[in-house]
Design a binder for these strands. Structure first.
Lengths: 146, 146
DNA sequence: CAGTTGTTTTGAGTAATTCAAAACAACTCC
DNA sequence: GGAGTTGTTTTGAATTACTCAAAACAACTG
């Protein structure tokens, strides 16, 4: 499901970010890529398949390094542990289910990033606008209706 | 700084919410009202002045009850513990300082609440849009410039 | 003012994450 | 291609913010 080239790409991106290329980093990158929004535990269980023996602490280290490097994005919705996703650089937003905490992406609401600018910002120099929508996901709507 | 009437109002609002009127609840309400965005520890230290011996656990209980009742609003910005404010019901937003975590209010950006509606919401039935701006507060701008 | 029910306290427990030091592996340079 | 340096991973412990549970207590009801 993932090619030789994928791994080379990942290695190149790590190097470009000034990070050493290591097995745990490749494994984490692969675990998160295209798999939605994962917390550290979920990343660990995916990583463990490819690289048994990896510690949770390493997963935290790697997730932190990759996030700082801009290769992953971290979101922290209320009531959830930190979640990581591979879609970076486009300032998209999120919908979170108030019942089961499922998360989905939402494209930028008002044109280009940063999407929104407050009129009065209390003297803050703003660089990011983060939008979180809250609602019921399709599954939970169904369960509550049924 | 707070009148007899303030306390009566607070008691009335508690009763209206179906909650018993107790000293810790009045003290917490008073501690949070008009004092920005406080975490549980900060609430405790303010409460302790008026009501020594109050436990942190009680502060958590009270903050939870008051939030559920809609008398307080809870926000949970990334990297900060939960913060409580007395301004409820107007769906205003927040700016958070990326350096010192100071928080300020921002009025609703695009007209009336809920302010925003995503075009595609991945099947979610959305009821709230939460906006968090990130930037440098005035103090931190000054310190970095100086 | 006695009873009931909800609240507060005390004390312990948990989840998610961070800190620190030692073992180890990737890249650099010869 | 092997030694050295530096960054990474592991192991183990600690911390923060918060929740759970049971007993002591206080607010409202009649």
């Amino acid at each position: 499901m993932h090619t030789e080239t994928d791994r080379d790409d990942a290695a190149a991106r790590l190097r470009a970010a000034g990070l050493k290329v290591t097995a745990p980093r490749l494994a984490v990158l692969d675990a998160v890529s295209g798999h939605g929004h994962l917390d550290a535990e979920a990343v660990l269980s995916r990583v463990t398949v490819a690289l048994p023996g990896t510690s949770l602490q390493s997963v935290y280290n790697v997730l932190g390094a990759l996030t700082d490097a801009g290769l992953l994005r971290r979101i922290e919705p209320a009531e959830s542990p930190a979640l990581y996703e591979s879609r970076t650089g486009d300032n998209h937003h999120h919908v979170v289910c108030t019942r089961c905490h499922a998360v989905a992406d939402v494209d930028c609401v008002v044109g280009e990033p940063p999407c929104l600018a407050p009129s009065d910002a209390a003297g803050f120099a703003i660089h990011t606008a983060e939008v979180t929508f809250w609602g019921l996901c399709a599954d939970c709507q169904r369960e509550l209706a049924g």
